[in-house]
Design a protein around this nucleic acid. Sequence first.
DNA 1: GAAACAAATGAACATATACTCAGATATTGC
DNA 2: GCAATATCTGAGTATATGTTCATTTGTTTC
Lengths: 100, 100
Amino acid sequence: MKLPVLDEHTAAHVAELFRAFSDTSRVRIMSALVGEEKNVTELAKLVGVTESAISHHLRGLRQLHIVRARRDGREVYYSIVDPHIVTLFQQGVDHIKAEE
Amino acid sequence: MKLPVLDEHTAAHVAELFRAFSDTSRVRIMSALVGEEKNVTELAKLVGVTESAISHHLRGLRQLHIVRARRDGREVYYSIVDPHIVTLFQQGVDHIKAEE
DNA sequence: GAAACAAATGAACATATACTCAGATATTGC
DNA sequence: GCAATATCTGAGTATATGTTCATTTGTTTC
């Protein structure tokens, strides 16, 4: 199938979406959130960076509506909003795993 | 389904893959190459940046084995290597188009 | 070989990005 | 209210990235 070239505006949004998964830490955050919500402290331990760094990443992912926050007492639990996003992410992971 | 957190090495490769589509110009290049090979001059016109910029982007995409080059006389035609990559890319585009 | 065209390359520069640190904000239990 | 814990935020910094410009390389036609 042949598509016309994406217009600047749409392309910018597509780039923005893929950019969400273009960093090692964010990829690991996403992989931790697949199938199970986690709070900031847990994510920091799992990913191996400071809670501050995790928080900064989550803010970006939240602004793109990729993750959602739910506060429970002192903790804030994050989860992936849209199952389609999980599929997209998983496809990227599978592609890499296939060529190793 | 619940996955363990991706190891640093795999996550870095996944990030690298998604980073390929994390720039507006590269997204437009990819969209131009879906279904049809194109040379550098054509891509430069379609995307609206210099041939040099296109060439730099294509080098990156080539190193990731996302596109392949084929020389025909003076021109070099580029095409997307793997149909799975097209699917992945299209899914990102569709996600954006769905929410507009 | 010389001229013309297509593409690739390296350096330079401006901007974007990820991380750390210090401090602020929110919530709980006393 | 106060101390402890969890999270967020802004500033600063070091590095990565995208683009342009000048030059080089590869190819064709004369």
